[in-house]
Measured scan of single mutants.
Amino acid sequence: KRRTSFTPQALEILNAHFEKNTHPSGQEMTEIAEKLNYDREVVRVWFCNKRQALK
């Protein structure tokens, strides 16, 4: 499976959402994914990886 390359704009939006809520609901992740035109699973993994990076 290929790595997803996030655009700077997408990272800005993802980081803004992460600052508000580090554990978004499934519905929220779906909405973010649709807004950014990414697969929901990609957004889920991004949040998971971001949380791990802060440990």
Rank of each mutant, 00 (worst) to 15 (best):
residue 13 I to H: 07
residue 30 T to W: 03
residue 35 K to D: 08
residue 42 V to C: 07
residue 10 A to K: 02
residue 36 L to T: 04
residue 21 N to K: 04
residue 47 F to S: 01
residue 7 T to F: 01
residue 46 W to T: 00
residue 5 S to H: 05
residue 45 V to K: 08
residue 45 V to Q: 04
residue 11 L to V: 14
residue 40 R to M: 13
residue 32 I to G: 02
residue 34 E to M: 05
residue 40 R to H: 10
residue 52 Q to T: 11
residue 2 R to P: 09
residue 26 G to C: 12
residue 12 E to Y: 02
residue 38 Y to T: 15
residue 44 R to G: 10
residue 23 H to G: 06
residue 38 Y to M: 13
residue 19 E to I: 14
residue 24 P to N: 00
residue 20 K to H: 05
residue 45 V to T: 14
residue 7 T to A: 06
residue 46 W to K: 00
residue 43 V to H: 00
residue 34 E to V: 07
residue 47 F to C: 01
residue 54 L to Y: 03
residue 44 R to V: 14
residue 5 S to A: 13
residue 42 V to L: 14
residue 39 D to F: 02
residue 46 W to S: 00
residue 2 R to I: 11
residue 41 E to G: 07
residue 27 Q to P: 12
residue 26 G to R: 11
residue 1 K to D: 07
residue 15 N to E: 12
residue 49 N to R: 08
residue 40 R to P: 12
residue 10 A to Y: 01
residue 42 V to T: 13
residue 55 K to T: 15
residue 34 E to T: 12
residue 49 N to S: 11
residue 14 L to M: 04
residue 9 Q to P: 12
residue 25 S to G: 11
residue 4 T to D: 10
residue 34 E to A: 13
residue 50 K to F: 00
residue 16 A to P: 01
residue 2 R to G: 11
residue 53 A to N: 14
residue 23 H to L: 08
residue 9 Q to F: 07
residue 1 K to E: 02
residue 4 T to V: 09
residue 39 D to A: 10
residue 26 G to S: 10
residue 30 T to Q: 09
residue 39 D to T: 12
residue 11 L to P: 00
residue 31 E to F: 02
residue 53 A to P: 03
residue 37 N to P: 06
residue 52 Q to E: 15
residue 2 R to M: 14
residue 55 K to N: 07
residue 15 N to K: 08
residue 55 K to D: 02
residue 42 V to S: 14
residue 8 P to K: 08
residue 44 R to H: 06
residue 14 L to T: 00
residue 23 H to V: 10
residue 50 K to A: 09
residue 4 T to L: 11
residue 43 V to L: 06
residue 37 N to W: 03
residue 24 P to H: 01
residue 28 E to Q: 07
residue 35 K to R: 11
residue 4 T to Q: 06
residue 16 A to V: 10
residue 7 T to D: 03
residue 47 F to M: 02
residue 52 Q to G: 06
residue 27 Q to M: 03
residue 6 F to Q: 05
residue 13 I to M: 06
residue 1 K to M: 05
residue 16 A to F: 09
residue 34 E to H: 15
residue 25 S to I: 04
residue 39 D to P: 14
residue 32 I to R: 00
residue 20 K to F: 03
residue 52 Q to W: 05
residue 30 T to R: 09
residue 11 L to R: 06
residue 20 K to E: 12
residue 6 F to Y: 07
residue 15 N to A: 05
residue 22 T to C: 14
residue 14 L to R: 00
residue 13 I to S: 05
residue 10 A to M: 06
residue 35 K to Y: 10
residue 25 S to F: 03
residue 15 N to I: 01
residue 24 P to W: 04
residue 23 H to E: 15
residue 24 P to E: 00
residue 38 Y to E: 14
